[in-house]
Amino acid sequence: MTLDRRALLSASLALPFASAAAKEAWTRPAGLTPDASVALWPGGHIKPPPGLVEQVVQRSDDPDASDRMLQGITRPRLDIFRPAKPNGAAVILAPGGGYRYVVVDKEGYELARWLKDRGITVYVLFYRLPGDGWIDGADVPLSDAQRAMRLVRSRAGADGIDPARVAFGGFSAGGQVATSLLTRFDAKVYAPVDSADALSARPDVSAGFYSVVSMDPAIAHAVSREKLIGINPDAAREKLYSPERNVRTDMPPLFLLHAENDSVVNIENSLRLHEAARTAGVPCEAHYFAEGEHGFGILKAAGLPVAIWPELFRNWLAARKIV
Rank of each mutant, 00 (worst) to 15 (best):
L13N: 10
L15C: 02
F17A: 04
F17P: 01
A22L: 06
K23I: 07
E24N: 12
A25Q: 12
W26T: 05
A30S: 07
P34N: 10
V38S: 01
V38W: 09
L40D: 08
G43C: 01
G44I: 07
H45R: 14
P48G: 02
P49K: 10
Q58G: 09
S60L: 12
D62S: 06
D64W: 00
S66D: 12
D67L: 13
Q71M: 14
R75G: 01
R77T: 06
D79V: 02
D79S: 04
I80V: 10
F81M: 00
F81A: 01
R82W: 08
R82Q: 12
P83W: 05
A84K: 14
A84Q: 14
A84E: 15
A84N: 12
N87D: 15
A89G: 14
I92V: 14
I92S: 13
L93T: 04
A94V: 10
Y101E: 14
V104D: 01
D105K: 08
D105I: 05
G108H: 02
Y109H: 09
E110D: 13
R113S: 06
R113A: 02
D117M: 09
Y123R: 00
Y123F: 13
Y123P: 00
V124E: 12
F126H: 09
F126G: 00
R128A: 06
L129V: 04
L129E: 05
P130K: 03
P130H: 01
P130W: 05
G131N: 05
G131R: 15
G133C: 01
G133N: 08
I135V: 14
D136M: 02
A138M: 03
D139S: 13
D139P: 08
L142G: 03
L142A: 06
R147Q: 10
R147Y: 06
A148V: 05
L151C: 03
S154Y: 04
G157N: 11
D159L: 10
G160V: 07
G160L: 10
P163L: 14
A164P: 01
R165W: 11
V166A: 03
V166G: 00
F168L: 15
G169T: 13
G174I: 11
G175Y: 13
Q176D: 13
L181K: 05
L181A: 08
L182G: 03
L182W: 15
T183P: 10
R184D: 07
Y190L: 00
D197R: 13
S200C: 09
A201C: 02
D204Y: 03
V205W: 06
V205P: 00
S206C: 13
F209E: 12
V212E: 05
A220M: 05
H221G: 01
H221N: 00
A222E: 15
E226T: 09
L228P: 04
I231R: 14
A235T: 15
A235D: 09
S242G: 07
R245V: 01
R245C: 03
V247M: 05
P253E: 05
L254F: 09
L254M: 15
L256F: 02
E260V: 14
E260N: 15
E260G: 03
N269C: 07
N269S: 08
L273A: 02
G281Y: 13
V282K: 08
C284T: 00
A286P: 07
F296I: 09
G297H: 10
I298Y: 04
A302S: 13
L304A: 08
V306H: 11
I308G: 04
E311Q: 12
L312Y: 01
F313Q: 02
F313L: 07
W316C: 03
L317I: 06
L317W: 05
